[in-house]
Design a protein around this nucleic acid. Structure first.
Lengths: 301, 301
DNA sequence: CAGACATGTTGCAAAAAATGCAACACTTCT
DNA sequence: AGAAGTGTTGCATTTTTTGCAACATGTCTG
């Protein structure tokens, strides 16, 4: 796709914020790069970058153009993907942006399943906080997104969503282990292993605690899901999970998960989708199909 | 937009059906054009055209690519339009595809009004039969469409639609001129001036006549609206019109229009819109706004 | 406050890419 | 069988792009 090289140049200049740095990344001379930029601006009749002393910055016109550029680039990828699919080969890359809650269990299994059927398809997982996932789609950094408790869905095209009630996880000999359902104040009596505040799970828990006037004692606050899962809970510590991560085969033995009373802690939602108005490459579209089908089977009963 | 010159080449080859003819139109050598085509196919890894003895024909892959090309070209026009609009200038071209029923009266007045406000905007009117209007959008020959009685709306994004009951037009001293409403069999007793069978109006009339077992005697069948309008009706001939064309100032004097009984002849619809999923250039979008606003004022009372 | 540094930009020669010309291989119609 | 199309390719030429060096300008720093 040599013909949209100028586009790549514009994108890189915008990212680097400087012609010289961009030229370095693109391994051409600053002068050549500058001239291409000037040529583009000449064709458009307007400047795309405003020149600062320390470099360049995108113009309003430039931002409109950049959006167009990103659309075109990923649409060309889609075209290539569809064309490759015509000859029976399923190739391409699927870039997934997902909330940290969803990096384990279900999603890896789905990717693995898809790759067994189509080994030519590669995957890229971008772990993003709930407020940043949508941005990854807008920047065309990712094709599809899995968001737990999305903040806004302005540019998001929802393909599927499932409800995920909050569960409390503990050792099976824990005093609370026998209960059918837990109130939040019961959990608050024990030390807690909580995810970071940027997580959707933490957001739900904090809001619920605030509303109920409960103080959650965070013994360990972690950004890593595996850390919370594997932490040794000798002192009766509790952590939280959502059902999509509670596969019977996968989880460590000796632990139980008990749902929280939905009156205390509202259910969360997992949203699956892509950038609004975009046609996905074949591989990404088929992957979404597979995932939503399996989600329907597992959670729609 | 020098960088998508290869795209223009592909489009022209597809249209011409031959590399040599396309090269002639593009005023370059067949060899150069051929090499560019080979380069594109090499980059895609697939042939875009199948080589026949008499020339070339688009492949399935080529058709996918061509759709992408057309999208990209018109989207770049949109970008240019938006950028130009940033600096206060309103420029560009609005290409309108419309049914033959709608070429007079309302539409010219709207275009004229818009051009008085923005003289920098040019217009292009493509008169198409109802079955072909949508195709003009798909081919990106037109930006917006006005269709009377559309056949299918698969790729059509409706922005507005209005109901248009069928009216019968006659001289004011015609025997039927005093009536409030006409039955179709009453009209059938007189010689008729009818539009061609490809028109939506004719379609509605023929279907109604067929259903009611009435035979419509077509004295004059014309493809030109103006011909039917200006025809001298000494022998009591009747013609038909829709309200959008019956402006009190504009129409010839001495004529009256009487609505047909909607039980005999169903109302027609005028659809206004554009290609589904496409973002229109500024000029086209604003023009649509103006038209729909005025339509609402005139027909929503 | 002056010097070092980094920025975008331009002139000019070298390198790279695209083009035109002519010829070839092939099919179809006369 | 020949004429007239078609797409394709080798080679010299032309056009375009690039790299190098230098310049003008603004910012940071000791």
């Amino acid at each position: 796709m040599r013909h949209l090289l100028p586009y790549k140049y514009v994108e890189e200049i915008a990212k680097a914020g400087s012609i010289r740095k961009a030229a370095d990344v693109l391994s051409i001379t600053p002068s050549a790069l500058n001239r291409r930029l000037l040529a583009i601006e000449d064709e458009l009749g307007v400047a795309i970058f405003e020149r600062l002393a320390v470099g360049v910055r995108l113009n309003t016109a430039g931002e409109i153009l950049l959006e167009h550029i990103r659309n075109q680039m990923s649409d060309l990828e889609r075209v290539k993907s569809q064309i490759a699919d015509l000859s029976g080969q399923r190739r391409g890359n699927v870039a997934i942006a997902c909330s940290p809650e969803l990096t384990g269990g279900f999603l890896p299994a789905q990717v693995n399943k898809y790759q067994q059927e189509f080994p030519g398809v590669t995957f890229k997982i971008n772990r993003r906080f709930r407020l940043d996932v949508e941005q990854a789609l807008v920047e065309h950094t990712s094709d599809v997104a899995f968001i737990f408790e999305p903040a806004k869905l302005a540019d998001f095209q929802t393909v599927y969503n499932i409800r995920q009630p909050m569960m409390c996880v503990m050792k099976e000999d824990h005093p609370l282990a026998g209960k059918e359902m837990l109130r939040l104040y019961e959990c608050a009596e024990y030390p807690l292993l909580l995810p970071e505040t940027s997580w959707g799970m933490r957001f739900i828990l904090d809001q619920s605690a605030l509303r109920l006037g409960i103080n959650l004692r965070s013994l360990v606050q972690s950004d890593a899901r595996e850390f919370l899962r594997d932490y040794d809970r000798e002192a009766g510590q509790l952590s939280f999970e959502i059902p999509i991560n509670l596969n019977r085969d996968n989880e460590p033995k000796g632990m139980v998960a008990i749902p929280l009373n939905p009156l205390d802690v509202p259910e969360g939602f997992v949203f699956v989708g892509h950038l609004r108005g975009r046609t996905l490459p074949v591989a990404a579209a088929r992957f979404l199909e597979q995932v939503t089908t399996e989600m329907a089977e597992r959670f729609e009963s």
